[in-house]
Amino acid sequence: MSDTASHAVILFAHGSRDPLWRLPMEAVAARLARRAPGLLVRCAYLELTQPDLPTAAADLARAGATQVAITPMFLGAGRHVREDLPALVEQLKAAHPGVIWTLRPPVGEDERLLDLLAEIAAEQSLE
């Protein structure tokens, strides 16, 4: 994905009532924004935390995004990723037809993340 202002990423997570829960998500968003300064980056949540996906998506459309990749920040592809999220993305396509919405696989399906998690667990087991 290019780092022009017309491109954007939404980091999509479940959400929690605990306000501290969102800190790692926001840290990922900040790191992504530093790596690609022209890229529009937002966090969005399924429930219990704001903004929700339609709100973050509308914000990006207003900001001029024409291509938005939605990255599910889930380790596994449960019902929310398999059913709820695709339905939400279809709603975004209808609400913002001038934007190309791409639903990425959940981060937990990426071999690099799985390797890193195994590495962290192995290091911690040796402490």
Rank of each mutant, 00 (worst) to 15 (best):
E123P: 03
H96R: 02
V107I: 15
A118W: 11
V89K: 05
R79C: 09
V89R: 05
E90L: 15
A94G: 06
A94V: 08
R104E: 11
P105Y: 04
E123C: 11
L116M: 13
L114V: 09
W101N: 02
D84R: 00
S125A: 12
R82Y: 01
L114H: 12
P86Q: 11
L113N: 10
A94D: 13
A95Y: 08
L88D: 00
P105E: 15
H80S: 04
H80F: 10
S125T: 14
E109A: 14
D110V: 09
H96G: 02
T102H: 04
A121E: 08
P86C: 08
V89F: 02
V81L: 02
V99I: 09
K93V: 13
A121T: 09
L116F: 14
P86Y: 07
L117G: 03
L114I: 12
I120A: 15
K93F: 13
I120N: 06
P105G: 12
A94C: 06
G108D: 01
W101K: 08
L117D: 03
A118C: 13
V81Q: 01
E109F: 07
V107P: 01
G108N: 04
E127Y: 15
Q124W: 06
A118Q: 09
D115Y: 07
D115T: 14
D84N: 05
E123F: 03
P97C: 08
Q91P: 01
V89G: 03
D84A: 05
Q124K: 06
Q124M: 15
L126F: 08
R79T: 10
L92S: 08
V107Y: 07
E90I: 08
R112T: 06
E127Q: 12
E111R: 06
V89S: 10
L88A: 07
E123W: 09
S125E: 10
L117F: 08
L114E: 15
E109D: 11
W101L: 02
E111V: 13
V99Y: 06
Q91K: 04
L92M: 05
E90D: 13
E123Q: 15
E90Q: 12
A122E: 06
L85M: 04
W101Y: 08
L85V: 02
L126R: 09
E109Y: 10
A95K: 12
L113W: 12
Q91N: 02
E127W: 06
